[in-house]
Design a protein around this nucleic acid. Structure first.
Length: 196
DNA sequence: CCCTGATTCGC
DNA sequence: GCGAATCAGG
């Protein structure tokens, strides 16, 4: 595969959107993430545009050159339904998942395990905010698409069609992504202390 | 281990 | 210019 105009554009677009090199590579097809990264560099969009690279004299051994793209991202793009096949014309009874803590106001079949309900009470507002944030980027995987390393946090009502799993990459050996781990594993109740 | 981007260097 | 291999970090 060669870097046609279109492909380069898609690359730019996705990179700007904050997609990872591997995701871009997957989307483009026929290239590896290395290829993508290499191209990104050649195109000179490794760092955020606008700002000029601070003149880095060859004599300066910049040990902390970490132009992390993440820091470059000005604002998360609004979710654009691209690859997700969402063509059912089905009436959205529950409507799009409000995102946030998996809510199940609707009917939950008896006997069905509820989604991980974080004790419904005091959860770091920050953690919740974080969850809301990342759920916009959720891959919205189906049960079948889950792997050992995709976040298995359920969103929506299992009884409806509008149900999916976060699907973002988990980090350690945890079942959830970073954000969801935050609300899933609460630090044990700060019980004054329970000396052994 | 999984992932990320960064860099190098033969092609 | 390209990208696999490698490096460096989380």
């Amino acid at each position: 595969m060669s870097w046609t105009d279109e492909r380069v554009e898609l690359l730019k677009k996705m990179w700007t959107e904050g997609q990872s090199a591997s995701q871009i590579a997957k989307e483009l097809g026929g290239v590896t993430r290395n290829a993508v990264i290499g191209k990104v560099h050649r195109l000179g969009l490794s760092n955020r545009s606008g700002g000029q690279a601070p003149a880095a004299p060859a004599s300066a051994p910049k040990a902390e050159a970490k132009p992390k793209p993440a820091a470059a991202r000005p604002a998360p793009e609004p979710a654009r339904a691209a690859e997700v096949e969402d063509d059912d014309d089905e009436p959205r009874t529950t409507s799009a998942a409000p995102a946030g803590v998996p809510s199940r106001k609707a009917i939950v079949p008896a006997g069905q395990p509820l989604p991980p309900q974080p004790s419904a009470n005091e959860i770091s507002p920050e953690a919740l905010a974080k969850v809301n944030e990342i759920e916009k980027k959720a891959k919205k995987l189906t049960l079948m698409e889950l792997t050992e390393r995709t976040c298995k946090w359920p969103v929506g009502d299992p009884a409806t069609e509008k149900f999916w799993f976060c699907g973002l990459p988990v980090q350690a050996g945890k079942p959830y992504c970073e954000a969801h781990v935050g609300v899933a594993f609460q630090p044990m109740s700060s019980r004054r202390d329970r000396r052994r």
